[in-house]
Simulated assay, not measured.
Amino acid sequence: MITHTVFDSIGAVLVGREPERAAIAALLDAARAGSGGSLVVRGVAGVGKSTLLADALVTASDLRVLRTSGVESESPLAFAALQRLLWPLRTYIDNLPAPQAAALRAAMGEAENEGDRFLAFLGTLSLLADAAEQAPLLVIVDDAHWLDDASAAALLFAARRMQAERVALLFAARDGDARRFDARDLPTVTLGGVSGADADTLLSAHAGTGIDPAVRDQLVTGTGGNPLALVELAGVLTTDQLTGRAPLPAPLPLTDGVERAFLDRYRRLDEPEQRLLLVAAADDTARLTVVRDAAKRLDAADTALDAVERSGLLRVDGATGAIRSAPGFSPVVKRIFSLL
């Protein structure tokens, strides 16, 4: 069996995503046939969401593509992301009903008044539908968790109403972040870690050598199969370590890229959640009861534990009551605090 691979702008390789690629292909085919729809791709940082979007672009050469993304610094700015998305279609605004056109011009910053948001949402839907009359349309929204509220509302409004329009909306949103993209009613696929032959392909592509199966399994266990972590490890481990002729370092090296990803997640937690994570980092028992009792003394309640689990930095083993580092490296929490 030949595995399809795609490299994105940072060199990640797409493997083991056939069900997700099939879901995207079905979305695009439906748009080509005149049935609009949407799909949300979710997953933690480094799991390959942007790589999957890049793969969608490869298969959508016959569609007109509009792109935007959420930007953290712009999240307080109403319609910032929508303005970037719709700017190539601005000449179509004149063809909209006058109330929608006026509201959308205001949202796009072409009128002084704020405009009616509901009419701006309707105008967004109408503008995308009109553009799709000329060619099927693919709308790609990356980092949707950082969309400003007005843009998110406008795009979700349109996504929920696509029916006979030749429009496909494809969102990518990070899990485990303090800010969420609330699209629970839309079709969703969630990316997990890779393992087995898929991990082999990923590691070999970046290491330039074959990987010993036992080494591969150790790396998958240590990283939760996170593709970004595996790619970066393939670049820093020696050929002897990857082929099993030399032991792996203990703990596994936490590369700059992965450090930044986990540190970014930590900084998005509220103060009680950060305190709980500090308690977990200082604890040597890995027992939930110990960590929970100590955290309560620091005013970090169980709600803080829930939030930390959602962040992906820790997980609780329901069967044993043990606290473990979540997908990522086993010493990740202690290393995070060494960076602060």
Rank of each mutant, 00 (worst) to 15 (best):
S151K: 09
M108L: 15
A152H: 01
A197R: 07
S151P: 06
A159V: 01
G224P: 15
R324C: 15
G70W: 10
R265N: 00
E20N: 08
Q218W: 04
T201Y: 03
V40E: 11
A30T: 03
S151F: 10
T91L: 06
G328Y: 01
Q241V: 04
P247I: 09
R64P: 09
D200V: 04
G115K: 00
L313Q: 08
P227L: 09
A199N: 01
A197F: 00
A54D: 11
A135P: 09
E232V: 14
V47Q: 05
L169S: 09
W87P: 10
A152S: 03
L82D: 04
L339E: 13
E18Y: 05
Q100G: 07
H206V: 14
T223V: 02
S35D: 13
E74D: 15
D200H: 02
A132V: 04
L305N: 12
R310I: 00
G37N: 08
L233Q: 01
E110W: 12
V333Q: 15
F171W: 07
P331V: 01
E74S: 13
A25K: 05
T320Q: 00
D283K: 10
A214C: 02
K334C: 11
A60S: 15
V47H: 07
H145P: 06
V139W: 01
T124D: 02
A153Q: 09
R179L: 04
L52N: 15
R297W: 09
I2W: 13
A286T: 03
G193T: 01
S325E: 08
G257N: 06
S204E: 11
